[in-house]
Design a protein around this nucleic acid. Structure first.
Length: 268
DNA sequence: AGACTGATAATCT
DNA sequence: GATTATCAGTCTG
């Protein structure tokens, strides 16, 4: 069994604290999608709601979608135009007829980073309301047959790409093409939590999730990054959706940070 | 703890 | 008509 103690879950903080000096500048986003995806881990996503409240959470899982021919070789279209805009532009798309995914454009044209999981910082109550609010009206609204929904754990509020969009009230209409450097609606900050400083956590690299239709040379890349031992990472584990051939090469754990001590292979 | 299923709709070609 | 690629619930062992 794994130890119950996990790193990084923090107390809810004062919602009015808005340390603007921590806001990440353009230069942070001006790096290739793979590098940016790693650099995003441990950063804080801030989102101001229509009522003025600011939600915050620490990014704990990302995926890179480089703009190179290696990966998503998709043409520019009206839908994905944000991926071709300034580094640090929010690209939000609608999927499965129900959910949204939140990406941040990177240096190269057409390159972006998908945010897959966020560890909530503030405000638990607001995020829970947003999660409880069904994306669409459920057909079966019968009062009797309902299984009582168990309250979300803190770390379950945004542990997936669709869930984090719900919890942070992110949708295409309000967030697509927002510039994270200049927008008042959403931006990134450095974390003040010691355990989220670069080099203080381990990063696991694995294959991306849900891209079976991509060509092998793209889908076999280890372009999913998550903070090891963080409870708030998404529930799609590397060994799920990756076929029986999964081996040590496909799930490498390295010490990240920027002093990359290349460590032994751990299978997670 | 893992496998499977159904629900859902804008955008693209 | 094809693409997109999540979540909650349910079943199985």
């Amino acid at each position: 069994m794994r130890p119950a103690m996990k790193r990084g879950i923090s107390e809810t903080r004062d919602a009015t604290a808005s340390p603007h000096f921590k806001k990440l500048p353009r230069e942070f986003f001006n790096q290739p999608a793979v590098d940016l995806s790693k650099a995003l881990l441990g950063k804080v996503l801030a989102r101001k709601l229509p009522n003025g409240e600011v939600l915050r959470g620490t990014i704990v899982e990302t995926e890179a979608y480089p703009g190179t021919s290696l990966s998503n070789h998709r043409k520019r279209s009206a839908r994905n135009a944000a991926m071709f805009m300034e580094p640090g532009t929010a690209y939000v798309y609608f999927t499965y007829g129900m959910y949204h995914c939140f990406n941040i454009s990177a240096q190269e044209e057409g390159g972006a980073c998908l945010l897959r999981a966020v560890e909530p910082l503030q405000d638990y109550a607001s995020m829970r309301e947003l999660r409880d609010r069904p994306a669409k009206k459920k057909k079966t609204e019968t009062g009797s047959g309902k299984k009582s929904k168990k309250p979300w754990k803190l770390y379950e509020l945004a542990n997936g790409p669709g869930k984090l969009c719900l919890a942070f009230d992110i949708d295409r209409g309000s967030c697509d093409k927002q510039d994270l450097v200049t927008s008042d609606l959403m931006w990134l900050e450095n974390s003040d939590n010691e355990s989220f400083q670069p080099g203080n956590f381990e990063v696991e690299e694995s294959k991306r999730v849900g891209i079976d239709s991509s060509p092998p040379e793209s889908r076999n890349q280890l372009w999913r990054f998550l903070i090891v031992d963080n409870l708030a990472v998404s529930t799609a584990k590397p060994h799920q959706r990756i076929s029986e051939t999964a081996g040590a090469d496909e799930v490498r754990c390295v010490i990240s940070g920027f002093e990359l001590q290349n460590q032994a292979v751990l299978f997670c």
